[in-house]
């Protein structure tokens, strides 16, 4: 890369132009014409990088079209959009769904109880949530491990001690950790929603093994997780009617928060940076006018030197 840049620019980057030339360069719109070599180099570079980009795009598209799984339809998430925050009431309900349903099989090991404070729960409530579970701790003075009620600083406990135990309990399939699942799956929360609500009878010709279910959104179609969300499969503390799609929507929103806890912060940052860049654009515009004012209002007078 460095060699190519050196080739194109030559020693020009290092040359000493004196004081006047660079200033004149900045003010003038007409540049010195490019040499033939430079033109060839630059157009080759342009064509090659354009071609590589187009090839990558085409490869990506063809992979997308070649799979047998259904593509999840896009849902109108209330956090979709440049300035839209998460719906925290929905995140809270989603936590309730995780706790009552998904927790039986899936860990959420990168979320701690303290993360819930002022996001979905008050500090008191989060402490109570933590105190509800037993956490393995130790070793104590005698070298024994023991169980104690959780604290705010504890991470959510996993349902299985390790992957092998999880596989043994689920027909050999591993229920993945859900902390980063929304970032880790194509389609994000659209995929999670479609997966949870998309179970159906296997079409003729599809053979399912023991413990497998058919879900068109899962790559391959045969998934070892049974349908878990039905109407009233979980209970909401805020009185929302717990239909299957409501449960799926809330748990998907919750998992988006787990993957991107900084989402609200980023949305606020978007607003701030747009404000800041607008101000800076105004300054840059003024500065340009300011610098060009002498150029635009100058007059050149030629005084011929008489021969006599």
């Amino acid at each position: 890369m460095a060699a190519a840049v050196g080739r194109i620019c030559g020693a020009r980057l290092l040359k000493n132009y004196g004081i006047v030339t660079p200033q004149v360069c900045q003010l003038s719109t007409g540049a010195q014409g490019w040499t033939r070599n430079r033109k060839i180099w630059l157009s080759t570079l342009g064509v090659v990088s354009g071609g590589v980009g187009a090839l990558l795009f085409a490869l990506e598209q063809s992979v997308q079209a070649s799979g047998s799984e259904a593509h999840p339809p896009h849902q109108p998430w209330s956090h979709d959009g440049w300035f839209k925050s998460l719906d925290h009431a929905s995140v809270r309900r989603g936590y309730e769904v995780y706790k009552q349903v998904c927790k039986a099989c899936h860990s959420l090991q990168y979320i701690a109880f303290r993360n819930l404070v002022n996001v979905t729960h008050t500090e008191e409530e989060a402490k109570a949530e933590a105190a509800d579970v037993m956490i393995k701790d130790g070793p104590d003075e005698e070298g024994n491990f023991f169980e104690r009620p959780g604290k705010l600083s504890d991470y959510l406990p996993s349902p299985y001690p390790n992957e092998n135990a999880a596989r043994a309990a689920n027909n050999g399939a591993y229920p993945p950790d859900l902390s980063l699942i929304v970032s880790g799956r194509k389609g994000g929360e659209d995929y999670i929603f479609a997966l949870l609500t998309g179970y159906m009878e296997a079409p003729a010709g599809v053979v399912l093994r023991e413990g497998q279910n058919y879900n068109p959104y899962f790559p391959g179609g045969a998934i070892s997780m049974a349908q878990v969300l039905f109407d009233e499969a979980a209970e909401y503390s805020d009185g929302t009617v717990a239909t299957a799609s409501q449960l799926a929507k809330d748990v998907s929103t919750f998992l988006r928060w787990c993957s991107e806890p900084e989402l609200d912060e980023r949305r606020l940052m978007t607003i701030k940076s747009m404000g800041m860049f607008t101000l800076m654009a105004v300054v840059a515009y003024y500065f340009k006018r300011h610098k060009w004012s002498t150029m635009k209002s100058r007059k050149l007078a030629y005084k011929p030197v008489s021969k006599k």
Binding site: K84, S85, N118, I271
Partner: peptide, 16 residues
């Protein structure tokens, strides 16, 4: 303060 006020008014009802 102005940015936060815009953010909060756009997302009224959804925030903690």
């Amino acid at each position: 303060l102005a940015s936060v006020a815009i953010f909060e008014s756009l997302n009224k009802g959804k925030l903690w």
